[in-house]
Amino acid sequence: MLDSPEKTTSSVLRARPKPRLVTLSINGEPHEVVVRPHIMLLEVIRDHVGLTGTKDGCESGTCGACTVLLDGKPVLACITLAVECDGMNVQTIEGLSEGGQLSDLQEAFLDQAATQCGFCTPGVIMSSKALLDSNPKPTVPEIKKALEGNLCRCTGYNSIVDAILQYSGQGVKPLMRKDGAP
């Protein structure tokens, strides 16, 4: 049985757990936050550090909008306890355009119109980055496998696949064009 009534009672009466110091490197910057154990990595990133590019779509690990790289691996920040990440490196979407310059991967998403409402986009790009970091020329099945945990309701995914193929130099040309004054 998952929880008996006695245990529920005891869990209400117990003393509050003490907060603890968690040290993270977020996009190369050191951050120290004080959190209680029930706080998620997502809350630390969005609320404590204030990087709201990482999105909260379902808070239950089912949509991929909160995908960040933890020591280089894509994980779901909404179901990862902050205390479990002490001393680790976190990369968020903000880390991809340091100094305001978009990365080529982000440019490819613009070229293919692979963002619409944009809410899934940070997570999709972080999953894509994780894939491309380890596999610079992924096949379409590899792309699908890497992104199966990222829901997108707007695009139908076609443009996302095209953006990754374009970025990885696999014969897809930009669909959209940049502004140029006439």
């Binding site: 998952l2 005891s10 869990s11 117990r14 154990p37 239950s60 690990g61 306890l81």
Partner: peptide, 23 residues
Amino acid sequence: LAGGTDLIPNMRIGIAKPAHLVG
């Protein structure tokens, strides 16, 4: 608590309510 991908969602919906986790 290992990866937490089963336990944490279950704690979120309150079907597991441990008082203590050993990571």
